[in-house]
Write a protein that binds this DNA or RNA. Structure first.
Length: 644
DNA sequence: GGCTGGAGCGC
DNA sequence: CGTCGCCGAGGCGCTCCAGCC
C-alpha cells in the first residue's frame, strides 16, 4: 500500500510511505530498471572546546552537494571538480560571544562563497537540519563522521534541545535524543540517520587501503588523490582563530576543502559502487557494509548460503557474551564463575597462528627469490574441505590441536569451501577484465574491487576465530592455521631437499630463497621449477613467484629491507621495499626515519661495497649529530606520534 | 634479569 | 506513545619499550 505521507500517520519525512503486511510479500523485481541515482551530501565540521564544560561545540559547518550519483558506476573526476568549485554552503557562528570579523560579516551579507552567518550554535544546528531536509540526501558523507563529526553533532542537538532533531534522518523519531546519546551503548549515529547512508571515508579508507598508515585527510589526499595540501589545523579549532578575518577565512576554506576531499576520496575509492556490490554479495544491509562490520557481512553471506542447502540446517544461535557465560555456567554448575576482565584492546591469543621462520640475518647481494601462497587460508579451506558441514565441530571443541583431524576425503563440498570458491571465481573474473581494460582509472577501481573480494575471502577465516561471530568455530580456525604451518614447512623442506635451495626466511605464507645467482634467467627458471613442483601436489593451493630482490638486508623476524626487481624483463629497474623497520613506523620521529632511510639506501646500493656503505652511514651520522647539536634541525623533525 | 602489558607493525 | 532489544569489535606472531619485582 502506498500512502501519501501526509494522509497517514507521520512516520517519515519522505514524500511517500510504503507499508507491507508481511515480508513474504516482498520479492525481487524481474527486469530491474537499474538503481536510481543518489544525492550525496558531504559534510565537514570545525569544533571548539567550551572553556567551562570542556565539551566540543560546533562552530563551522560546510556542505558540498553532489546530485545524481550512480551507485553502480564509478564517478568521473570532472563531476567532482564541478561540485567542489561551488560549495553548497558553509556556515559560521560567533565563538565566545565575540562578533566575527567585519570582513566575514561582509562576505555573509553579499553571499560570497555561499557563506552563511548565524547568531549562535543552536541556529547553526537548525541551519544544517533545514539544509538536510531541503536537499534530502540519500548519502551523508564525511571524514571521521561516525567517530567525531556526526557524533558531536548529535550530542549538540541533544544538549541544545533542538526541536525535531530527527530531521537529520528520514524517519520521524520522538525518542529523547539526550537519553540516546548518553547511554553508553555504542554508536547512535546510524540509528539517528535512519533512511540515509552514512559514508565515513575514514572507515572506508581503512577497509579498502589496509596498507596505508596515516588516514588523516592530508595524508590520504596525497597518497590517493596526489594532492599536496597546505599545512592545516585540526578539526578542533582554537577560539582565537575566529577573531581575525585571515585566520577565520583559512578555517572556512579548510572546512569546505575537507568536505570536498572526503567526497573525492569516496569517489576515487568507488566506495558507493563497491559497498553496493559487497552488499549484494553478502546479502546484508548496505548501511552496515558502510560501517565496516565485516563479521556481520560474513554472517549474512553464510546464512544465505545455508538457506540454500538441503536438507535444511538450523542456524547456530548468535550468542552474546552474556549468553555464552550463562551457557558455560549451566554446563559446569559446580565450577566457580571465572571473572575474565574484558579489555577493549587485544586479548591473549586463543590458538596458534602462522609459522614465522627464524631469519638467516645478513646482507644478501645476489638475487633473492620470494614465493607466496595465493590466499593461503581460503585455499586451505577449499583444499581440505574444512567446514562445519564436513566436521563435527562440537566434538572437537575442547580437543588439543593435534587431535583435530581433517575431514575424510570424498565428502561433498562444504559450505565454506563453496562460498570461497565462488569468491575466488569472481575475483578471477574481475582480474581478467582488468587485463583487457585500457583506462587507467577503471583499472584502479577494478583493482580495489578485487582487493575487496580478497579481503572478504580472508576475513571468513578471521570470523571462524572470532568469539562474537555467529559462526565462531575455533577448531576450524585452529585446523586452518595448522595446515598453513604444515604447508609452509613442507614447501621449505621441498626447496631444501629437492632443489638444494637456501631458504633464508619465511612468514605464514611466504618463503625467501637465496639463489646466489646473478643471472635473472636462471633465477626465473629456478622459481618456475619450484613453483611447478609445489603446485602439482595440490588441487587448490597455489604458490607463485611474488618478487625477486637484487639486494636484501634481513635483520629480524618481520623486519627487512630489499631492492625489488620491478619487472622481471628489466632487472635494472629496482624499487626499495621496507618492512617493519623503524623507518616505516610512526612512533619514531622524522629525523630518525630520515637517518635510517639513508642507511638502508647505502646498504642496498648496488654500486657500493658493504664497507663503503658503512663508511657513508657513519659519516652521515656524524654530520646529522653536528646538525642536532648546533640546532639546525627543524622542530618538526623531532615529533613522534604514538597513541596512548 | 625475567615477567607483563601496550603499541604498532607483518602476514 | 514509550519500552524492549541491550548488540555494535575478523585472527595470531613478533619486536620494542616501559614498568614492576
Amino acid at each position: 500500500t502506498l500512502f501519501r505521507s501526509k494522509l497517514c500517520e507521520r512516520i517519515a519525512y519522505t514524500k511517500f510511505v510504503v507499508r507491507v503486511d508481511s515480508p513474504e510479500k516482498i520479492c525481487v523485481m524481474k527486469d530491474q530498471p537499474g538503481a536510481p541515482p543518489l544525492t550525496v551530501l558531504a559534510l565537514s565540521f570545525k569544533m571548539v572546546l567550551h572553556p567551562k564544560t570542556n565539551q566540543h561545540e560546533i562552530a563551522v559547518v560546510a556542505g558540498v552537494l553532489m546530485p545524481e550519483v550512480s551507485s553502480s558506476t564509478p564517478v568521473e573526476s570532472g563531476m567532482i571538480m564541478h561540485a567542489a568549485s561551488a560549495p553548497n554552503f558553509v556556515a559560521v557562528r560567533p565563538v565566545n560571544h565575540k562578533p566575527v570579523p567585519i570582513g566575514i560579516q561582509e562576505q555573509a551579507r553579499t553571499k560570497t562563497g555561499g557563506l552563511e552567518l548565524v547568531p549562535n550554535e543552536q541556529a547553526l544546528l537548525n541551519f544544517v537540519l533545514a539544509k538536510v531536509m531541503k536537499l534530502d540526501p540519500d548519502v551523508i558523507l564525511g571524514h571521521d563522521l561516525t567517530g567525531f563529526g556526526l557524533d558531536v553533532f548529535l550530542n549538540r542537538l541533544a544538549s541544545c534541545k533542538t526541536r525535531d532533531w530527527s530531521r537529520i534522518g528520514r524517519l520521524i523519531q520522538r525518542k529523547d535524543l539526550n537519553a540516546m546519546v548518553k547511554s553508553k551503548l555504542g554508536n547512535h549515529v546510524p540509528d539517528a540517520l535512519a533512511g540515509r547512508l552514512v559514508l565515513d571515508t575514514l572507515v572506508s579508507a581503512k577497509e579498502l587501503c589496509p596498507r596505508e598508515k596515516d588516514y588523516s585527510i592530508p595524508a590520504l589526499a596525497e597518497s590517493l588523490l596526489n594532492r599536496k595540501l597546505h599545512p592545516r589545523t585540526d578539526a578542533l579549532a582554537t577560539p582565537i582563530a575566529f577573531e581575525y578575518e585571515q585566520t577565520l577565512n583559512a578555517l572556512l576554506r579548510e572546512c569546505v576543502q575537507d568536505a570536498e576531499i572526503s567526497l573525492q576520496l569516496s569517489n576515487t575509492l568507488s566506495v558507493l559502487p563497491l559497498s553496493r556490490q559487497l552488499t549484494s554479495l553478502s546479502g546484508n544491509v548496505w548501511s552496515k557494509t558502510l560501517r565496516g562490520a565485516r563479521a556481520e557481512r560474513i554472517e549474512f553471506l553464510l546464512c544465505h548460503e545455508l538457506a540454500l542447502i538441503k536438507p535444511k540446517l538450523l542456524l547456530p544461535d548468535k550468542l552474546s557474551k552474556y549468553d555464552r557465560k550463562a551457557l558455560e555456567a549451566a554446563s559446569n554448575p559446580g565450577s566457580a564463575i571465572v571473572q575474565t576482565e574484558e579489555k577493549a584492546g587485544r586479548r591473549k591469543p586463543q590458538y596458534a597462528g602462522g609459522l614465522v621462520l627464524e631469519p638467516k640475518k645478513g646482507l644478501y647481494d645476489r638475487y633473492v627469490l620470494q614465493l607466496d601462497f595465493n590466499s593461503l587460508y581460503p585455499s586451505i579451506i577449499q583444499e581440505y574441505n574444512i567446514c562445519f558441514t564436513t566436521m563435527d565441530v562440537d566434538a572437537m571443541k575442547n580437543k588439543a590441536e593435534d587431535e583435530i583431524e581433517l575431514p575424510e576425503a570424498g565428502l561433498a563440498e562444504g559450505v565454506l569451501p563453496r562460498v570461497l570458491r565462488r569468491l575466488v571465481e569472481q575475483r578471477r573474473a574481475v582480474k581478467a577484465v582488468m587485463k583487457k581494460e585500457q583506462d587507467a582509472a577503471k583499472v584502479k577501481q577494478l583493482d580495489i574491487r578485487q582487493l575487496a573480494i580478497k579481503l572478504t575471502a580472508n576475513s571468513l577465516y578471521g570470523c571462524l576465530g572470532f568469539e562474537n561471530s555467529r559462526f565462531f568455530a575455533r577448531p576450524l580456525a585452529q585446523l586452518i592455521t595448522l595446515q598453513g604451518r604444515e604447508t609452509l614447512q613442507r614447501t621449505i623442506d621441498l626447496a631444501r631437499d629437492s632443489f638444494n635451495a637456501e631458504v633464508i626466511y619465511g612468514d605464514t605464507d611466504s618463503l625467501f630463497v637465496y639463489t646466489g645467482l646473478e643471472d635473472m634467467m636462471k633465477v626465473r627458471a629456478l622459481g618456475t621449477e619450484l613453483k611447478r613442483e609445489v603446485n602439482k601436489r595440490y588441487k587448490t593451493l597455489e604458490i607463485e613467484i611474488d618478487a625477486v630482490y637484487a639486494r636484501m638486508l634481513l635483520l629480524k623476524k618481520k623486519k627487512y629491507a630489499a631492492m625489488k626487481v620491478a619487472s622481471l624483463n628489466e632487472p635494472q629497474n629496482l624499487v626499495r621495499e621496507v618492512k617493519g623497520l623503524d623507518l616505516v613506523r610512526h612512533d619514531w620521529c622524522g629525523l630518525s626515519r630520515m637517518v635510517s632511510s639513508f642507511a638502508v639506501d647505502q646498504l642496498l646500493s648496488k654500486d657500493l661495497s658493504a664497507d663503503d656503505a658503512i663508511g657513508n652511514v657513519l659519516t652521515n651520522l656524524d654530520f646529522i649529530a653536528n646538525q642536532v647539536m648546533t640546532n639546525q634541525i627543524a622542530l618538526q623533525q623531532y615529533i613522534i606520534t604514538r597513541s596512548l
